[in-house]
């Protein structure tokens, strides 16, 4: 494997990370904490939305994020010939 191959792989990896971590931040610190009061104006069933994000929604998103990451990385590994 060449060095430039590794560099390109790493760059794409970092892009994925930044994208996924941005979502991670928005659902938990954004929706669950900073903008909770605004979101609480909206109600879904018995849940105020901000409260729901803080105690339920963010956790579901966390799980989904990791599995999306797993998929993205498996594809990326293949693309650069690092799969095994």
């Amino acid at each position: 494997m060449t060095k430039s191959n590794a560099k390109a792989y790493w760059k794409e990896n970092i892009r994925y990370l930044l994208f996924l971590l941005a979502i991670w931040f928005i659902v938990s610190y954004g929706a669950g904490i900073l903008f909770k009061d605004i979101l609480n104006e909206i109600k879904i069933g018995g849940f105020k939305l901000g409260f729901w994000f803080a105690q339920q929604g963010s956790i579901y998103v966390f799980v989904i994020l990791i599995f999306v990451y797993v998929r993205l990385m498996n594809k990326l590994d293949k693309k650069y010939g690092y799969d095994e």
Partner: peptide, 20 residues
Amino acid sequence: YDGAVYLMGWTGGYVLLALL
């Protein structure tokens, strides 16, 4: 509501763990 610190804190760490 404040209990959310444990709920998010103790699960969100796994995103960091998995990605970083």
